[in-house]
Design a protein around this nucleic acid. Structure first.
Lengths: 212, 212, 212, 212
DNA sequence: AATGAATGAGGCTTCATTCAT
DNA sequence: CATGAATGAAGCCTCATTCAT
């Protein structure tokens, strides 16, 4: 059908058994994508790793892309939860000072550490489907919104265009910590890196960039 | 296993005609990779676009990867030339102030504009071959070295660890301008973006971050 | 091999509810076969259209073929009923003159119009199962028998071999009207076509072929 | 590509070697389609039977349909040649009398005998692709044109609408002889059948239907 | 009886690569 | 050196059918 090229899930798993199947498939896919990259992963391999027949896989996912997308979505959701937890910890009226920036950066790094390879695929290989609403963009949006609202609470902010400042903040921190985790952990000490990045962001945003 | 997985060119094109063939193939490959991505591109399509038989293509490239790699190398080389020109313009004893930062950023953006799709592939799809020395790393190294030497000439630099500062500078500017060109040109005005990025970098590096 | 390739219904639906289920499935199958052809139709699609689980479908039909076959059988039965009605209308001692030929042809066309697609499938796709007794042959036989008996009542018949004449009559009328309904309704006016076909048959069979 | 669903040949075989390959594939396809029907035939089976790799098959045919179509086209062409020979034999100013009708019918039957199974597929299974220009329609058109021109030369023709008469003639003869060859050779003697059909057509068309 | 999740053989097709000419 | 025909491993995916609940 035309379904084959769509990315929508094929069938909502209603019974517990099938919900489990979907979960198992996604878990296996995460492993396979992580270890083989997107191109190297095959649906058969994923199904096998999941201990599920290839037919079952295709009951719930119209194609390989859709699996990766779902995975990215899930990853996205976890990212949002991560943010949410920070937001709640910080409270609604917190303001963005040096220490909070550091804390956010630390959290970001911790998040990237969880499954760097999968994150890499989401970040570096998912854009292959440019025309597709990329879940990552959504987290970025929300994260930026969160930062922006913090900035709004904060007095000594250098920037006028808070929206843009917030987005650059998020993009920069995301990318640099991604690179750090993936390629540079043994070039630079982690706390050195964190301090450096914190400094960069604090000075970018704050009139009084004390970072500790 | 002997040749098939190698990435070295099969045969050094010595005669002018073959050099030309290689160039034609690479140009075609650039177009095809740009429009179809790495996975979507086929060697037959490249050969056809180049007006060359598939057999000839394999005379000069042992496999598909090698083509992309050569292309990336070329891209790298152009990046280095770009740098070189700036270095020469700026002179060996220049120091990094706000306006120079802006100029570098502008150059970076101009460079990314030349063939953003190809750049994207180098950046986002080349990591597929993780085991392969990524030419991009080399440019980054050199670029960072260049920035570092500028910093060394400069008086009001806030940073101690110049090497690291330089690398973060390069990575940040590279990535953010890449994203900007690829995904955000119609979200933000170019000069606004440039000013913002310049400001960020100037404040990160300079004690007296005047940027215009 | 025991059941899977059989074409007999798995279980005689004795209770009213199951009889209804069978009917619902057949109706759905008719629609799906009509719109997708035999190969394009899937059992799942049929079951879904019938509002019945795939499991239930297989409770009553051993395989996909059996469904089409049952449908064809049903179609056959309707064809026979059609004939029967004409026979009864015409009466046992009628003789085949031009007007009656025209009437038979009109009835045939009306019959073909009811579900031309399904008729097409029976006629054109059912032969896929060559080894299967084709119900269509049966109707043809009976129809031919009917025509033959009419011929026997008729005085001015040109033919000796009435059996053969009757069969040719039936085959010709059936096929030509089938083609007409399916492919040529907008090439020729219906009454023109009917007159033409009537003329052909009348002249073939009757010494005095007045057709109106 | 979008090519996959097209029916156009993929690549014109230019060298003798490839022309041979195409011929071999078509021959094998004819056999396989004949013995397994359209649905039962697989591209792999065809390639194997042709002693050719599956890849080669797909160099020249975008999909299974295209093969059948080509085959039907070929069959069509042969049909046209058949006609052509008769036309030439008969001469341009011949007129359609009983003996000529008989001769045409005999030729038609001979033609059907050559590969009845393949003919059956063309006739009964090809309509599966209704939306596709059916080559069979073309032969029919040409054949009808031929008959029409004969009718034009003939004096004692009963019919006004020669175009329609010619088409009915062709359709009737084609279908009845097809059925005869496929299903009824052992029910009726061939010459009896021929005489009968000749009689039917002669009386339909001619004022003076002497058929021998 | 009904449900619908699960199965998996097997079809179609691609495309990097080789090789005969 | 060039050509382009040929190769075939391997991927994606379907769908008739079974089976646990």
């Amino acid at each position: 059908m035309t379904d084959k090229d769509s990315l929508n899930p094929r069938k909502q798993p209603s019974q517990p058994r099938s919900r489990n199947t979907v979960a198992v498939i996604l878990e296996a896919a995460a492993q396979v994508f992580s270890s083989s990259g997107y191109a190297g992963a095959t649906t058969n391999h994923i199904a096998e790793r999941a201990g599920v027949s290839i037919g079952s896989l295709y009951q719930y996912f119209p194609n390989k892309n859709a699996i990766l997308l779902k995975l990215a979505e899930q990853h996205t959701r976890e990212g949002l939860d991560f943010l949410d937890r920070i937001v709640r910890d910080v409270g609604p009226s917190a303001c963005l000072d040096g220490p909070l920036i550091r804390r956010i950066i630390e959290a970001m790094i911790a998040f990237h550490k969880r499954d760097p390879e999968l994150h890499r695929i989401s970040l570096e290989e998912l854009p292959i489907f440019k025309h597709i609403a990329n879940g990552a963009a959504e987290v970025e949006e929300i994260a930026a919104g969160f930062i922006e609202s913090l900035l709004r609470n904060t007095k000594g902010v250098r920037k006028q265009n808070l929206k843009m400042a917030a987005r650059l903040f998020v993009q920069t921190v995301d990318w640099l910590s991604h690179r750090y985790i993936l390629y540079e952990t043994d070039v630079v000490e982690e706390d050195v890196f964190i301090s450096e990045l914190t400094d960069m962001m604090a000075r970018y945003l704050l009139a009084d960039p004390k970072t500790d």
